[in-house]
């Protein structure tokens, strides 16, 4: 493992751990709602398969992950299956192999909270939804979902846009971004280890 990959992984896991343990006030939380745009079905892993929800600073040095499930309106066909709603919390399996895999929404929706740890989150911060899309993830294909954000768990929700596969949107909602080549390469190297 190269040094910069080790440092990147360490910082990400550290921030993730802090995020999972911190219980900040609502003003220190960003709420994210994800609605599946795939019709409900009766198969396992139907619909958008959400692995993780990430809030990152413009330079990518700070990465915070969803740490609490606020509402789960997904339609699980196998309640006791590994496909648990909590699987979309924390970092993606692309970064942490110990992380739980994915939550399939199956035509439903979920809302999660991201603790911002008192950091000043500006509109140029980015929200990334890791949806299993068959590219960096070995399995799956991209499936669409609607993303909205709020500072209150009960809304009102502000639509950010529609994503499919791994999607990154600026909080300003004006600009859609792709993962950088460097980031994609970094994630690929982690996955291949």
């Amino acid at each position: 493992m190269r040094v910069h990959e080790f440092i990147t992984r360490f910082v990400i896991l550290l921030i993730s751990t802090l995020s999972l343990t911190a219980e900040g006030a609502d003003s220190n939380r960003l709420y994210v709602q994800i609605k599946d745009l795939v019709p409900e079905g009766d198969e396992i892993f139907t619909g958008a398969d959400i692995d993780a929800v990430e809030l990152s600073s413009p330079n990518g040095m700070v990465r915070l992950y969803a740490s609490a499930l606020i509402e789960n309106n997904s339609n699980s066909v196998t309640p006791d299956h590994a496909d648990q709603a909590s699987a979309l919390l924390g970092p993606p399996v692309l970064i942490s192999s110990e992380a739980p895999y994915v939550k399939s929404l199956n035509g439903g929706s979920v809302s999660v909270a991201i603790d911002t740890l008192g950091l000043q989150v500006s509109p140029d911060w980015n929200l990334t939804v890791y949806e299993v899309d068959g590219t960096l993830y070995a399995e799956g294909a991209p499936e669409p979902y609607q993303i909205a954000v709020s500072r209150d768990p009960s809304g009102p929700w502000r639509d950010l846009g529609i994503g499919s596969g791994i999607t990154r949107l600026a909080l300003a909602g004006q600009q859609k971004l792709q993962l950088s080549d460097q980031e994609t390469s970094s994630l690929s190297s982690i996955v291949s280890q």
């Binding site: 745009l37 019709p39 899309d133 068959g134 590219t135 991209p142 669409p144 529609i162 994503g163």
Partner: peptide, 27 residues
């Protein structure tokens, strides 16, 4: 996928899906 796309009713969804499948295809 075809069934879902036949139901799609917003250009935003079509564009998002097109971009995602383009990434998939190129990969």
């Amino acid at each position: 996928e075809e069934f879902r796309l036949h139901l799609a009713n917003s250009p935003q969804q079509i564009i998002a899906e097109l971009k995602a499948f383009l990434v998939y295809y190129e990969h």
